[in-house]
Design a protein around this nucleic acid. Structure first.
Ligand SMILES: [Mn+2]
Ligand SMILES: [Mn+2]
Ligand SMILES: [Zn+2]
Ligand SMILES: [Zn+2]
Lengths: 137, 137
DNA sequence: ATTCTACATTATAATAGTTCTAAACTGTTG
DNA sequence: CAACAGTTTAGAACTATTATAATGTAGAAT
């Protein structure tokens, strides 16, 4: 995980050229023990802290969308004026603290499987996501 | 329900002055058998079909926010480029068709109660919402 | 190694939903 | 009625996101 060659392989095998911008963003997103949630703005800040070579905003958007398309990131549906992304791509649900605007994983073991006993003809289920909004008690 | 005096009372008792703009919007939102989902743009179109006196966009936004704050509307969390509102303020979950960008209620009888077996200290649960994304089968 | 080309980055403009501003208007109260 | 707070409004401002189009580059072909 500490070696860039891992990301280079991963990118190449996804059909994405391993540019230095993409490798840097991989390091920031995936070179951590814990997964995390972020907005584009969060990521831009992390990048500027992590490097002197700046990456253009357009590239940050392009890269996040490319990674999402490849399944390396998930987008979390919260009602907000900006998109939230998640480096945790496994199946799980979320708490959203509207006071602190903080998004937190709920361990999947702590949620009973959600059963939907109806279907829409001609449509298949793509995802089932639970959002638990919390506020100060 | 066909009488405006009902809305006038409702608005007054909520501390909102019953202006003709608000009454018209009440008629459009609440004078129906079925509840429905809408975006601001949808509502603007409904208004211009329903009346010759135009209502400014700012007033539409102001009114929807005021009604949401009073609990007469819910905002549905979807990652989209626009906000979705719901005249159905009872507890229920949603299908979202990403192809047609169509939001549909799931009858609450068709969803097993969602059990969250963990809490965040100092926080209380405000809502639990399930979003089922569907796509063409 | 040089050349080629499709892919990628970039600055910047454009877009679109939403919020803000401040002036004019109106419902309610005394 | 007069007074005032609440409301509406046109338009500007704001902000997240996407599009544009010129420049740069990775990887492959020669
Ligand atoms: Mn919102
Ligand atoms: Mn937006
Ligand atoms: Zn998560
Ligand atoms: Zn609904």
């Amino acid at each position: 995980m500490l070696n860039n060659s891992h990301y280079i392989d991963k990118l190449r095998s996804s059909g994405l050229r391993p540019t230095k911008q993409r490798i840097k963003i991989c390091e920031i997103l995936f070179n951590t023990e814990k997964t995390f949630h972020f907005t584009i703005n969060d990521l831009v800040k992390k990048i500027s802290k992590a490097t002197n070579d700046k990456i253009s905003l357009a590239t940050v958007y392009n890269t996040v969308h490319a990674f999402k398309k490849k399944g390396y990131l998930k987008e979390i549906p919260i009602n907000s004026d900006q998109s939230y992304f998640d480096t945790n791509t496994s199946h799980h649900h979320h708490f959203y603290d509207e006071n602190q605007k903080d998004l937190m994983d709920i361990d999947d073991a702590d949620v009973e499987p959600v059963k939907i006993n109806t279907r829409i003809p001609g449509k298949k289920i793509k995802s089932v996501e639970v959002l638990v909004k919390v506020e100060d008690a």
